[in-house]
């Protein structure tokens, strides 16, 4: 049995009167790629954001690598070092060069010395295919390049888990492929990943498990071939036929 990286039990989250997550249960094992799909407003992004505590849950348990995390007593900054995140809108730091973006957290948070951090940052930029862009400011990059820098920046903290919140939704169609290729490579290296996406091709090819969310709940989950080819729930069938 593979190590359990994330365990979520009865997770609840509301924004005011709006119940966004209702008793969600999910577990993610080491090296697994779990893809969350569902209509907008189904709670998939909120679920992702609860995992690294950008949103604070209203109820339930979140266990990261065997340790239950209580946002009141735990140092969330340490938890977040283990859980990297990639955003839909990249959120690169516009006043820093690509290299500085990647080096920022290792130097400022982990107190890594600069020359070492620079070496590692350059290696990561090489890995995402952007060695030649190290000294460029984000504004000069295409969307696909920005997102690959964002992935390198998250990886620089050497996380055990990577969360992707619709990483290709803000991209022009011709730029989606390069980002998905980077993510696929990461999955093949054994990174534990939770991905919110509308890219069903990626889900079919890379995911170990696909989770369909509807109305703040996990409606159906299964291996990609099962869920895509033989969905059990009518709701899942409707959703899949609406997007495929």
């Amino acid at each position: 049995m593979k190590k359990e990286m994330i365990r979520i039990e009865n997770l609840k989250k509301s924004f005011g009167d709006l119940e966004v997550l209702k008793e969600v249960n999910l577990e993610v094992h080491e090296s697994d790629v779990v893809v969350l799909i569902g209509a907008s407003g189904s709670g998939k992004s909120t679920l992702l954001r609860c995992i690294n505590f950008l949103e604070i849950k209203n109820g339930g348990r979140i266990v990261i690598e065997g340790e239950e995390i209580d946002p009141k007593s735990h140092n969330l900054n340490e938890v977040r070092q283990k859980v990297g995140m990639v955003f839909q809108h990249f959120n690169l730091f516009p006043h820093k060069t690509v290299l500085e973006n990647v080096m920022e957290a290792p130097v400022m948070v982990k107190n890594q010395n600069k020359s070492e951090a620079e070496k590692e940052a350059k290696a990561l930029l090489g890995k995402v295919g952007l060695s030649d862009k190290a000294d460029v400011y984000p504004a000069k990059l295409s969307g696909g390049q920005k997102q690959r820098v964002a992935i390198a920046r998250a990886l620089a903290m050497k996380p055990d888990i990577m969360l992707f919140d619709e990483p290709t939704s803000a991209l022009d169609p011709e730029l989606v492929g390069e980002v998905l290729a980077t993510m696929k490579e990461l999955a093949q290296e054994g990174m534990t990943m939770v991905v919110v996406t509308h890219e069903m091709g990626f889900a079919k090819e890379v995911a170990d498990e696909v989770v369909y969310m509807h109305d703040g709940q996990i409606w159906e989950r299964g291996r990609p071939d099962e869920l895509f080819n033989h969905p059990k729930e009518d709701r899942t069938k409707d959703f899949l036929s609406s997007i495929l």
Binding site: L54, N77, R80, Q81, F87, N91, E104, M108, V109, A154
Partner: peptide
């Protein structure tokens, strides 16, 4: 959010 997600205070 990006800063916080990297473990920065």
């Amino acid at each position: 959010e990006a800063g916080r997600s990297l473990g920065m205070t």
